[in-house]
Amino acid sequence: MDSLLQFLFSGLTVGAVYALVALGFTIIYNASDVVNFAQGEFVMLGGMITVFAHEAGIPLPLAALLAVVLTAAIGVALNKLAIEPARGAPVVSIIIITIGASIFIRGASQLIFDKQLHRLPSFSGDAPIRIGGATILPQSLWVIGGALIVFVALWLFFTRTLTGKAVLATANNRLAAQLVGINTRAIMTLSFALSAAIGALAGVLATPITLVSYDVGVALALKGFAAAMLGGMGNPKGALVGGLLLGLFEALTAGYLSSQYKEAVAFIVILAVLFAMPQGLFGAKSTERV
């Protein structure tokens, strides 16, 4: 029982990171129908910029803020320079563009930063907290709490603010949104900034536990993409649930079956879910218009 609780804690921690990446995917997908495979690089940038800013003597909270802002700016640049000019290109071309962007960002980080593994000090110490026979690191609570806060904030943003509703309108029908006077290009820019900032935040929160190097982005992008798909692409609730579930599957597999195959089980579960529910857990049914 204790070990089960322990696995659940570690699963939730990892799952919260996946959920944040998946939320980033969701926001951009909703605004532009683009799956941004460079999403994992935002997480990497968040971690790397914080580490280097912190080493340069900037206090940790300020360094983290700097990382989030800079990454958001990079997200906007990605939209303006690579996504917007290719508007209307087929899915395969968009996939190649965003993967090209992720390779580009990785190549640039390798030059600007370095190829070493880096870590950040934990925000509230390293003394594990005992809960019912299992332990959890304070940093894990930061990660899980961060994911929940981001989710609630996004939910408030999308349902309570005019800008948020404009994003939803754009996601629903771009042309109709334009007709009622929504600046859909600005919405797209906003989505990339928001998505990159969330990715960077995930990087800042997770780096004390998972460490960061220039090449952590690919794996995170794949997991986040899978989590978003599991939940149903374009659905923030699906992204949160999909991310947490994926983390839990991995932790339970690693704990009870085989740590080597923990990622395999995650993908097998996703394949199984997609077979049964081709639109993911929370995805809306869609039919092809003739």
């Binding site: 320079l81 690579a82 000019p85 290719a86 290109a89 087929p90 071309s93 968009i94 190649i96 563009i97 993967i99 090209g100 962007a101 992720s102 390779i103 580009f104 960002i105 990785r106 190549g107 640039a108 390798q110 030059l111």
Partner: peptide
């Protein structure tokens, strides 16, 4: 070698934008 990824990424993006 240092710039390999940088150039590869840029080529992928540019070709898809200008020669979709």
């Amino acid at each position: 070698a240092e710039y390999e990824q940088l150039v590869l990424g840029a080529v992928m993006i540019l070709v898809m934008i200008f020669l979709p």
